[in-house]
Design a protein around this nucleic acid. Structure first.
Lengths: 334, 334
DNA sequence: CCAAGCATCCAAAACGTTTTGGAAAAACCC
DNA sequence: GGGTTTTTCCAAAACGTTTTGGATGCTTGG
């Protein structure tokens, strides 16, 4: 029962062509008719049907927002919500709709990610929360559907990425700890399947090199980004290398886990053990001591991804790999 | 140039009607032709165009997810992400797509929320993060577009809601503190514009009554859900009513703020002051002492909202007000 | 006054599906 | 063998727009 363009046309005594052109601001309709049509459209409360428009224009103006798996992911909440907000806001400004897609959904429907998106005629996709070992990775990179991936350095003809400069982030952390006088700086990394892990390890090593400290394998432990994993990381490092006086954790959650374990073992933070995290989640300001960390600009990451994608779509810009500067935020823990 | 149903029809030497019926599992197509068509569709990698289908079927199978304002809302991240995940997962299971809408976007486009949704032919809307004093509230309730609101008790012909049973949640907290021996129990509430605030105050009062304690106005302070607001609340209550031995805060963030202020003032928690929060955010397990709180089942709230909406759409079920049971989670703080 | 240009309008095709109302052929019943 | 049913298929309409390619009448320039 919704009112169509035909209803407006009949009420105005003109053809639907004229109504369409009047409403879309074309030149070849006289001022009086245009005014009359606008009034009638208003009076009838006419709303153009986006579906019909999409069909004939062959443009849905819709972007898919692919989240690796919505339900499960306990970690990354803090991270993802802000990125998502950034993506959404920018796309909305640019006149695009955003439709959610989860990898699990596509699987349920027994169609590939790409098929899912083509059926809906998405014009592009923004991908977040995906892992290096995710089977979807290949599909995303190779698919002709324009895409921008967040936090994974995938670059191809139709696929760009946005991530924080994790190498420099880790270097900042190491340099800062060095400047605070530490000479035995440990590193607790996240799991290897996360793309950021390799970069942060590299940054840690480079950081040590630039300040002139040797790299000690016993000072590195690979964990899993979780709170418990951080505590575990602290214990392992302390056991394998008792002289450690500072630990850089690849996530705030791990840093908090490690810090609590240290406090529980009677160490003082930062006097006996300095702690630096990564991400700058809300929690960092709420724990005590407050957590020194390397901050990522999450909202901006989302906005940047959105802009890159639209650039590719509307101005044929080539996909790029964009690194956003991290920010060292010094608080009480180190 | 995506392949259409016509391409498949030509390749198979049949009409597009037959292709459509074959692919959609209708009876009146012979097994051999069906098999042939399926093979050819597969070979050509045919994907039905959802836009065209939506147009002719007059059904988009798309639900709008209205978030009050995405960009700004600093508080509520934890809350919203889980709810959002629940909504999405359930709707996806039920075969619906989810499109994001922010109140700010609609404003930018100078169309009302309802117009925004009608243009896109959303079949229903789920609303979250909206406040009592939001101008959109009226629109949502009165609009003929089926909707379910989260955390706001709006009920009408086309509008249901899902929220935690805040009254009982508050009662649980008070009863628990009473059972721990407390006889002077304070309450720091959130701002009055949040719909949940009225309920929590009511629950607090009812809780007092059921355990036989008098209601003291000096034991209630209205704050703003924030960390600082919690600290402020603690100070005000302590000043106006020095005998207070336990405080129930209407949010975990306030509880933590209040608790930290208490600790800073030399009080022991829970010995000198017992503290109970509301929400069960991640942080509650990370502070020390860990926080006793009233937990909400956020993911379930999302799922329930999704189910109610689809019930209204597909089975003409009347909109309801559903209250989800809260859960008292006893930890160290009280 | 004629040709050309301009302003204003419209009929019809197109977008890619689903669905309706048969039609043709085959199978069945007595 | 004639009627009826069943099976298998299809042409055409419909969904609500945009866009193409004129058509009509009026104005203008020489």
């Amino acid at each position: 029962m919704p009112v169509t363009i035909r209803d407006v046309a009949e009420a105005a005594g003109v053809s639907i062509t004229t109504v369409s052109r009047a409403l879309n601001g074309y030149a070849d309709v006289s001022p009086e008719t245009r005014k009359r049509i606008l009034q009638i459209a208003e009076r009838l409360n006419y709303r153009p049907n986006h579906v019909a428009r999409s069909l004939v224009r062959q443009r849905t103006q819709t972007i898919g927002l692919l989240v690796s798996d919505f339900g499960k992911s306990r970690t990354g909440h803090h991270f993802m919500f802000d990125v998502l907000a950034g993506v959404y806001e920018r796309l909305a400004e640019l006149g695009y709709d955003v439709s959610l897609v989860s990898t699990t959904t596509a699987q349920q429907h027994l169609v590939s990610y790409l098929d899912f998106c083509t059926e809906r005629r998405f014009e592009g996709v923004i991908v977040m929360g995906i892992r290096l070992d995710d089977p979807y990775v290949h599909e995303v990179v190779e698919s002709p559907l324009p895409s921008v991936v967040i936090d994974l350095p995938l670059l191809s003809d139709h696929c760009g990425y946005v991530m924080t400069d994790n190498i420099n982030g880790a270097k900042f952390a190491v340099r800062h700890l060095f400047q605070q006088g530490h000479r035995h700086i440990g590193f607790v990394n996240g799991y290897a399947q996360a793309a950021v892990s390799a970069d942060r390890l590299r940054g840690y090593k480079e950081g040590l090199r630039t300040v002139g400290l040797p790299f000690e394998p016993a000072l590195v432990y690979e964990s899993d980004f979780s709170l418990a994993g951080g505590a575990q990381g602290f214990r392992e490092l302390r056991q394998g290398y008792p002289d450690v006086t500072a630990i850089f954790f690849a996530s705030d959650l791990m840093a908090i886990g490690g810090m609590r374990e240290a406090l529980a073992n009677g160490l003082r933070v930062p006097e006996d053990l300095a702690v630096v995290g990564f991400d700058n989640i809300d929690l960092t300001e709420l724990v005590s001591p407050t957590l020194t960390t390397v901050g990522q600009h999450r909202y901006e990451m989302g906005m940047t991804a959105a802009e890159m994608l639209i650039g590719m779509l509307e101005r044929d810009e080539p996909p790029q790999g964009r690194l956003l500067a991290p920010e060292l935020i010094v608080r009480e823990s180190g």
